[in-house]
């Protein structure tokens, strides 16, 4: 864990001004009160481009307090560009403590993954969302899709899954897999793999979603049912590569496939770097452990 620092005096704490943070908190309260409902909010310009997590950053800025410990992941990794720059941003503008350990974090901002380590009560996970509207590709009219949400008129969502099975024999959707939250609203879980969908169900942590460009916030309060849509005869099946991690040997984590040479060589590694590192520290070894590529970098 990095220690707390003094924030850059040129910025208000957390970059956003206090009025903006209050506005976002009001939207968050409404979102928590109506699980899965998309609350419009006055999304601000952030010092990076739309699509890089502006929505998630605004939510994080609004919930971050001085006692918090922030973890930022991108595709499960703590050390990718997006994760590093967002973590550095919050260190600079709020002086918050940061960590790469899931268990130590109180606020986790994520893009495309939920950590492997089960989240606990009093943790907040903030998702970066590119497209908050699960019906967008099915119904082009915003007015109509809002009405469909209002009336829980969701037949169309199943038409999409029907088409998938008709064409491919199974539901091929493997990320951003639509879920029914609290038995009422259909929600886009952001582009996390369907592998992570079951982790959202009845989670003790608070889950917040921010879409900066689309100006929407939504939330799943702790202990809320989150059901992935499916058919009775084609049940939901979380997708995972049929292999195990070549570094730590994990058989139940979500894997990334990495090409390692120009002769068809490849390896599978846990996408959650913190999880994989902890397992290796505990002595777990995969197929390529000890390989030059598998040497653990020292920070």
């Amino acid at each position: 864990m990095t220690p707390a620092t003094t924030p850059d005096a040129a910025y208000n704490e957390g970059y956003l001004d206090e009025q903006t943070k209050r506005m976002i908190r009001r939207a968050l309260l409404k979102a928590v009160a109506i699980p899965g409902y998309q609350v419009p909010f006055a999304s601000r310009e952030m010092p990076l481009a739309y699509g890089w997590g502006t929505g998630g950053m605004q939510v994080t800025a609004a919930v971050l307090g001085q006692g918090d410990v922030l973890k930022v992941i991108d595709q499960g990794a703590d050390d990718t560009t997006n994760a590093v720059s967002i973590r550095r941003f919050f260190t600079r503008v709020s002086g918050v403590r940061t960590t790469e350990r899931t268990a130590e974090a109180t606020v986790i901002q994520t893009r495309h993954r939920i950590p492997e380590e089960p989240l606990r009560a009093h943790q907040i996970i903030v998702y970066q969302v590119p497209q908050p509207e699960p019906l967008r590709k099915l119904e082009p009219r915003e007015t109509e899709s809002r009405r469909m949400h209002a009336l829980a008129d969701y037949g169309l969502m199943h038409v999409k899954l029907y088409e998938d099975i008709a064409r491919h024999g199974r539901i091929t959707l493997s990320y951003d897999y639509p879920v029914l939250v609290g038995g009422r609203y259909i929600m886009a879980p952001s582009p996390i793999p369907s592998f992570d969908n079951p982790k959202m169900d009845n989670s003790p942590a608070l889950q917040l979603f921010g879409a900066g460009r689309e100006k929407r916030i939504y939330a799943i309060p702790p202990h809320t049912s989150v059901r992935s849509l499916d058919f009775e005869d084609h049940p939901f099946h979380p997708w995972r590569a049929t292999s195990c991690c070549d570094l730590c040997g994990a058989e139940d984590s979500y894997l990334d496939e990495v090409v390692i040479d120009d002769r068809g060589g490849r390896m599978f590694v846990c996408s959650d770097t913190d999880w994989c590192g902890q397992r290796r520290d505990a002595g777990h070894r995969g197929r390529l452990a000890g390989h030059a590529l598998a040497r653990k970098e020292t920070a």
Binding site: G155, V159, I165, F231, E232, D233, H234
Partner: peptide, 13 residues
């Protein structure tokens, strides 16, 4: 199938 699914049918077959 859309109307069937809108009316609550959830068995693909």
């Amino acid at each position: 199938g859309e109307r069937l699914m809108a009316a609550g049918a959830r068995h693909w077959g």
